[in-house]
Design a protein around this nucleic acid. Structure first.
Lengths: 166, 166
DNA sequence: CTATAATCGGAACGGTCGCCCCGTTTTTGA
DNA sequence: TCAAAAACGGGGCGACCGTTCCGATTATAG
């Protein structure tokens, strides 16, 4: 791979990460290209479709979240970490909410499984009510991100966490 | 006003109400026109802009909700009514979430005020925690609609309502 | 019944966006 | 250095959508 190609590829990734985080998945490819200092054609040579670029940018964020879930963190803490991730990074919020683009099933499943493990642990310890399922939690995260976006802060997440206690 | 014009106007309103409720604000005007059995030009003669059509359709829904809030209903009950309104009617959910189109400030303010009254009442009676504001409630409604949409039901709203109790 | 004016429908316009094409530039290895 | 190969960039295509335009149609007053 030629040196300039590798350099441009990285520029596109950096620009895409930055803009997708602040603007969400709706941002035009041309804007990412402009920010990266390349033409739109260059973006499409490195990433054959907009979806593939989004995937490349979002995947390691999801992996980082999965790692965080496996780092001995508490369920309630990780819940707020997820909401903060969605609040900080609009692209994350959009993919969690299933907004148009799909993420590889395995990455989604890994995050889901890690989160489910934390939930089950907390339920066995008796700190979280036993009648909520992992899918419920995912839906609540999405809702909390929507809530937090409209208040510009995550303070209200504590209301939901309080409602989750046993 | 000519008879056919009045008839077409009503057809457009009916079709728009139906499609906007199921598809949300993103539906093209052409589709509403087709469903109403008229041309797109006819829609635009009666409603100069897409926003004005949406406004005409959504406004009386919001007024109905405001009336419901003033009908002696309980705060927690009305909270679930609002979420159900957003779940049943995508257009309502979209405007509540501020999705692109704006609603006249007075209708929004009336609903907001009625909801705030219910909240204050419940807080004085000691059933709802005193540290949440009316704006918090609106944000929580939006979040609950997002949650409910991803689970296809409003059962999880009870988690949030539980978290709201004093 | 007919003239007039209101109304109609759908083709057309302008703007946006994802994606492709291709003449031009740049890298690279011999 | 230089020629082949790789990469570049931006104009252009097709699709979608809100909105406008205008020739054809239809309701209604006299």
């Amino acid at each position: 791979m030629r040196a300039d190609a590798r350099r441009n590829r990285q520029s596109v990734l950096d620009a895409a990460y930055e803009i997708l985080a602040t603007e969400g998945l709706g941002v035009p490819i041309d804007e990412i290209a402009r920010r990266a200092g390349v033409g739109a054609g260059t973006v499409y040579r490195h990433f054959p479709t907009k979806e593939s670029l989004i995937e490349a940018v979002v995947l390691n964020r999801l992996h980082a979240l999965t790692d965080k879930a496996r780092s001995g963190i508490d369920f309630a803490e990780f819940f707020t970490v997820m909401v903060e991730a969605g609040l900080t990074n609009r692209a994350i919020a959009d993919v969690l909410a299933g907004g148009g683009y799909q993420i590889p099933a395995d990455a989604d499943a890994a995050l889901h499984a890690a989160f489910a493990e934390l939930l089950q642990e907390a339920q066995q310890r008796g700190t979280i009510r036993p009648d909520v399922t992992p899918d419920d939690i995912q839906a609540l995260v999405i809702g909390c991100v929507a809530t937090a976006r409209h208040r510009g802060a995550t303070a209200l997440v504590q209301v939901v966490v309080a409602g989750l206690r046993a």
